Computed example of a mutant assay.
Amino acid sequence: MERFKSDVLLFIYNDLQEGKVVRKNDVINKFSINERTFYRYIKDIKDFVEKPDSVLIGEKIIMDREKGGYILNGKNEKNLNEKEVLSISKVLLESRGFIKTEIEDIINKLLEICICEDKENIKYIIGNEVVNYVSPQHGKKLLDKLWQISTAIKDQRILDIEYFKMGIDGRVEDKVSRRILYPQGLLFSEYYFYLIAFIEGKSYEYPTIYRVDRIKELTITDRKYRVDYSKRFKDGEFRKLIQFMQTGELERIKFRFTGGSIEAVLDRLPNAKIVKEKQGEYIVEANMFGKGIKMWLLSQGESVEVLGPEKFREEMMETIEEMRNLYLNLMEVR
Rank of each mutant, 00 (worst) to 15 (best):
E277D: 11
G301N: 07
F244Y: 13
P309I: 03
G259V: 02
F289P: 00
T37V: 07
M245F: 12
E237R: 10
N329A: 14
L187I: 15
G185E: 04
A272C: 14
N25I: 11
P136Y: 00
E263Y: 11
R313W: 02
E321D: 11
V284H: 10
I115R: 15
G127K: 10
Y124Q: 11
M245P: 04
V172A: 02
L250C: 05
I107V: 04
V21H: 12
I126S: 08
I220Y: 00
M316G: 13
Y39M: 09
I61M: 06
I215V: 14
V134F: 05
Y204N: 14
Q17C: 15
K67L: 15
L143S: 14
S261V: 02
D15E: 08
R178N: 13
W296F: 15
T221Q: 09
F198S: 11
E162M: 08
T258Q: 07
G69H: 06
E263P: 04
K311Q: 03
C114I: 05
S189W: 02
R40K: 14
D15I: 02
L110T: 03
M288R: 10
N132H: 10
K278Y: 07
F98W: 07
I62K: 13
K119D: 05
E94Y: 05
Y191C: 10
Q17V: 09
K231V: 07
M1R: 14
L146C: 07
R268L: 09
E305Y: 10
E332R: 15
F11Y: 15
S299H: 10
R268P: 00
L298K: 15
S203R: 09
V227L: 12
E302T: 03
I153W: 08
I45H: 07
I180G: 01
R23I: 07
A286K: 01
E314I: 08
V49H: 01
I168M: 06
L10Q: 08
P183F: 13
S189H: 11
Q184D: 07
I113H: 09
Y206H: 14
V306Y: 00
L143V: 14
T247V: 04
D44M: 09
Y41Q: 11
I57S: 12
S177Q: 13
M331E: 11
F255N: 02
V131M: 04
V49F: 07
F238S: 08
D15L: 05
I161G: 06
I274N: 05
N14K: 12
E321C: 10
N25Y: 03
K109N: 09
I274P: 00
Q184H: 15
K224R: 06
G74T: 13
Y70T: 08
K145G: 12
P136T: 07
E2M: 07
K294T: 04
I88V: 15
N329Y: 08
